[in-house]
């Protein structure tokens, strides 16, 4: 679905290379996350993939087409939502979606159905100027889905959303995957990436430093042990036990039987730990 080989890029007039040879591929039906701090090059990579920046070096094919050779009809097949949702403020939600819908020639979804899916049906005839950030973010997702895209590019899709709406958006993204669509997310929100991405790539200073599934990364970089917290004499105590032979570890088994256990966790790494370890930098 997406094939990137040795992608290099520098902005016109600039001496600095922004991307230093990215290599990755995304199969159909995968939710892929690009994670990295601001200025790492993830937005530039996304702008190349969506055909805005075409003066790149290397090979970038999306839906079997080299992106630098695509024409505006490329956008019939892809959906894009940037982090900051922008609309005509004097138009209502419905007018905005109808306007954007009129720009496509292929099959499109009905705006009212999309608005209903994101809980905005009753605001269809409200001017977007009166929308909150959360409402605009959801409207932005509707806009990106209007043309029933094969592949969806989302920049910080849960930014500015309350937990309920963040979950709604994440569920919609997972539904896209279930329908066989491919989704590429750019974010610095580790939790959102972990919740929905099949694979993630850490990008720092224009290079991919790690690429794998969140689960695999967490297991590989974690400690193979379990942490037990229990309460005794009104004090919280914690003990660690190796995962190897845990079931036959008498001390562990006795502790479970003897004490009032409050929490029991394996010590896999968090994505944030892995990121800091791999890059020496923090996500902002």
């Amino acid at each position: 679905m997406v094939e990137v080989r040795n992608l290099r890029y520098k902005y016109p007039g600039s001496k600095d290379q922004v991307l230093h040879g990215l290599d990755f591929s995304i199969p159909q039906g995968e939710i892929f996350g690009f994670l990295g701090p601001s200025g790492a090059g993830k937005s530039t990579a996304q702008k190349i993939l969506i055909g805005i920046l075409k003066q790149y070096e290397g090979k970038v094919t999306v839906l079997g087409r080299e992106v630098r050779e695509t024409k505006p009809d490329y956008y019939e097949k892809i959906g894009v939502a940037f982090e900051f949702p922008n609309f005509y403020g004097r138009f209502t939600a419905m007018e905005n979606l109808s306007l954007f819908r009129s720009l496509y020639q292929g099959t499109t979804s009905k705006p009212e159905e999309l608005l209903d899916r994101v809980g905005l049906a009753k605001y269809a005839h409200t001017k977007v100027d009166n929308f909150s950030k959360s409402m605009k973010m959801r409207l932005n997702l509707c806009r990106a889905l209007l043309n029933q895209p094969e592949i969806l590019f989302l920049d910080e899709p849960t930014s500015g959303l309350d937990p309920v709406n963040a979950r709604l958006v994440k569920e919609m993204i997972i539904q896209m995957k279930t329908a066989g669509k491919t989704v590429l997310i750019t974010t610095h929100n580790m939790q959102a990436a972990e919740d929905i991405c099949d694979r993630i790539a850490f990008i720092v200073d224009g290079r991919i430093v790690l690429i794998d599934s969140p689960r695999q990364l967490k297991v590989e970089h974690g400690k193979r042990r379990v942490r037990v917290e229990y309460r005794k004499n009104e004090q919280i105590h914690q003990e660690y036990y190796e995962l190897e032979g845990l079931g036959t570890n008498q001390e562990f088994v006795q502790l479970l039987g003897r004490e009032r256990i409050e929490t029991l966790h394996t010590e896999e790494a968090t994505l944030e730990d892995i990121f800091i370890k791999a890059t020496g930098r923090k996500l902002e």
């Binding site: 969506i50 805005i52 505006p72 009809d73 490329y74 956008y75 019939e76 892809i78 894009v80 940037f82 900051f84 949702p85 922008n86 609309f87 005509y88 403020g89 954007f100 720009l103 496509y104 020639q105 932005n140 806009r143 043309n147």
Partner: peptide
């Protein structure tokens, strides 16, 4: 000011 071009030109609009 509304950054509307960001959304207009990720459609087939030329």
């Amino acid at each position: 000011g509304q950054d509307i071009h960001n959304t207009l030109f990720v459609t087939p609009y030329k």
